[in-house]
Amino acid sequence: MEAQPRLVNAADRMELGLETSTLEGRNKVLGFWVFLGGECALFASLFATYLTLRGQTLNGPTAKELFHLPLVGVATLFLLTSSLTGVLGINAMHQGRRRSLLRWLGVTVLLGLAFLAVQVVEFITYVGEGFGFSTSAFSSAFYALVGFHGGHVAFGVIWISILMLQLKKSGITARKAPKVFIASLYWHFVDVVWVFIFTVVYLMGIMGI
């Protein structure tokens, strides 16, 4: 018999976790990766928008006048750490340790909330400095990009919280595992986007590029 993709996939799966033990799980994981590919295009469009409009500050403050490095640094630290706790959670799931999984997911959610809190403080400060959504094309583009990312973080926090409720009820099953796994993929992706945001928006903004 000639090569059969199913068998090859099965061999691949030996190394992988519970999330890909069923066809449903494999569909979910692949489908979610595909979705993340689309998310790349989405954030690229937002970055392109931001880069096109960032010089259009009109009478409002410029990036250089506005951004505070320490604040961004703290936010970055929260999000990066949450990415580590997320992957440690998946590790626990692979070993079938539910309480450990729940603990790591809990920490991840808390760090996500901390990040959001910093962002809220930041936005409130900016608005106080006369930098609202409607101040200039630059301000609109800034809030659109960073706000879209913040929205993603908020969605992830809610998503993971609901998963934690379900995990408490049902434990780690072949149906739950892919859901947790894709939520962690999502969370890492949100972190990936943040890496570019702090580099392109904040660091380059402070340099006045």
Binding site: T49, T52, L53, Q56, T57, L58, F133, S134, S136, A137, F138, S139, S140, A141, A144
Partner: peptide
């Protein structure tokens, strides 16, 4: 917003 409104710096 002012993304596309040239008068406000949009494009």
């Amino acid at each position: 917003g002012h993304f596309f409104d040239a008068a406000m710096g949009g494009n």
